[in-house]
């Protein structure tokens, strides 16, 4: 169990490059390479891979349109990247020799912090300072601390949910692997695929909910 979890490999200046960072770079490289390969020759009539990609993008767009029908399209890069990255990162844990970057609390917290920062960013960008700040005191100014607390706690809950699910899955697989290395972890690994995709979906849809609550006029979560 000791080698579960990130180690520091080397330092770039004051920043430590851990195994998680390496895995993140691999995932990023994979995603960017695949998207370049597919979008380099976009055809009018899509091939199989392009169709898959378009299906994904359209699915995300539909989810956004359901939540924030008027101005939600500007979330698409952030939300789509979140979905792709978390999905790919969750599935990375199944590759031998690699650990899921999301099973490191740093990655999960980083993603949640980005969502935490994106909420006021898009809120101010679309509604303007005054209207956005008004949402904090929307029923009454008494609610302002609760709004702020809820924003902070939901950030941590986003991070902890993702991290806990993926780490729990990895620990279960590791324990099963220690007990019986052959065949026994396979059902759990199949389940891990399911969990990884579901967690990516949930992170994405919660992000959309938070963002659209900041963008659309009525109420906060």
């Amino acid at each position: 169990m000791e080698n579960l979890g990130p180690h520091i490999l080397f330092m770039i200046g004051p920043l430590p490059v851990t195994t998680t960072v390496i895995a993140t770079w691999l995932v990023m490289g994979f995603l960017v390479l695949v998207s370049i390969l597919i979008t380099r020759k976009l055809q009018f009539l899509p091939g199989r891979l392009q169709n898959l990609l378009e299906l994904f993008v359209e699915g995300i767009m539909n989810m956004i349109d359901d939540m924030a029908p008027s101005r939600g399209r500007i979330f698409l890069p952030l939300v789509g990247t979140l979905a792709l990255f978390i999905g790919a990162a969750n599935l990375t844990g199944l590759v031998p020799g690699l650990e899921a970057p999301t099973s490191d609390f740093n990655t999960a917290l980083a993603l949640a912090l980005i969502v935490f920062a994106a909420v006021p960013y898009y809120g101010v960008k679309i509604q303007g300072w005054k209207n956005y700040l008004k949402t904090y005191i929307s029923p009454s100014p008494v609610m302002a601390p609760f709004h702020i607390i809820s924003e902070i706690t939901r950030t941590f809950s986003l991070a902890l949910r993702l991290f806990g699910n993926i780490l729990g899955e990895e620990i279960v697989i590791a324990i099963l692997f220690i007990l019986a290395p052959i065949f026994v972890p396979v059902p759990m690994m199949l389940f891990a695929i399911f969990t990884g995709v579901i967690q990516a979906y949930i992170f994405t849809i919660l992000t959309i909910v938070y963002l659209s609550a900041a963008v659309e006029k009525e109420g906060e979560t």
């Binding site: 806990g164 949930i202 919660l206």
Partner: peptide, 20 residues
Amino acid sequence: SRTLFVGLALLESLAIYVLV
């Protein structure tokens, strides 16, 4: 089912807190 997924995720995060 979409609302159900979100709700289940929120509920499950309670168990995840315990796990953490």
